[in-house]
Simulated assay, not measured.
Amino acid sequence: MTTGASTPSFSTRPRRSRLRTFLPLGIVAWLVLEIWLLTVVAGAASGFVVFLLLLAGFVLGSVVIKRAGRRAFQNLNEALQRGGSPSSGGGNGLMMLGGLLLMIPGLVSDAVGLLLLIPPVQKAVAGYAERTVDRKLREAASGSLGDAFQQARIHRPDGKVVPGEVVRDEPGTYGDTPRGPVPPLTH
């Protein structure tokens, strides 16, 4: 016997973001490019030259990170001694990123890391990052509180969206437990 009422079934999954779709492909392409470039350099020169290049990149990257970290810590100390708030960093974050890219084995990452150590490039990248973050914050703030609650739903693996609340019913926390009832709030 069937009734006319049935629950709708949502079998479609939500769309993946572009970043989640293309980031793994980009990482794999970058790794293949790095390995190919290292083999080309090893074929043109020798394996020992490639080893020396990778070692020099690691040493230079560690020096850059140490210097940028020391400068950031010094800026923080000076700001705290003056009683003010710390500044935005003054390019130390991009210097650390450049040092990290130098430390990662590969010639493309070394080239990008060296580019990030050039002050005009740092200024351009910092400006672009700041504009992007400001735009994303404005987009996030333009939504209403209802939109935030709409996004805070539980997504089940089968694609169904279940609005809900987590209630923990553990002994010793509420109600008639060995500790007794929770006293009412009086104010």
Rank of each mutant, 00 (worst) to 15 (best):
W30F: 15
I27H: 12
Q150N: 11
K123P: 00
R16H: 07
P8Y: 03
V133A: 15
W30I: 12
T132M: 15
L53T: 01
N92G: 13
T3C: 04
T39F: 12
G91D: 04
S46T: 08
Q74C: 00
S144M: 09
P119E: 05
G164A: 12
S109R: 02
L145P: 02
Y174L: 11
D147I: 07
L100I: 09
R82F: 02
L53W: 05
T2C: 03
E170P: 00
S144W: 11
P178L: 14
P24T: 09
V133C: 11
L101P: 04
A42Q: 06
S88Y: 07
V41K: 11
P120C: 03
G180L: 09
Y128A: 15
L38Y: 01
T12R: 14
A111H: 05
V63I: 08
E130S: 14
K136W: 12
T12V: 13
K136I: 08
L115H: 04
V166P: 06
V49F: 11
R179D: 14
V112Y: 09
P157C: 09
R70M: 00
L19Q: 05
V167E: 08
E139R: 11
K66D: 02
A42G: 13
A45M: 10
A29Q: 11
L54E: 07
E34M: 10
V49N: 06
T21P: 01
S109E: 06
A5E: 07
I27C: 15
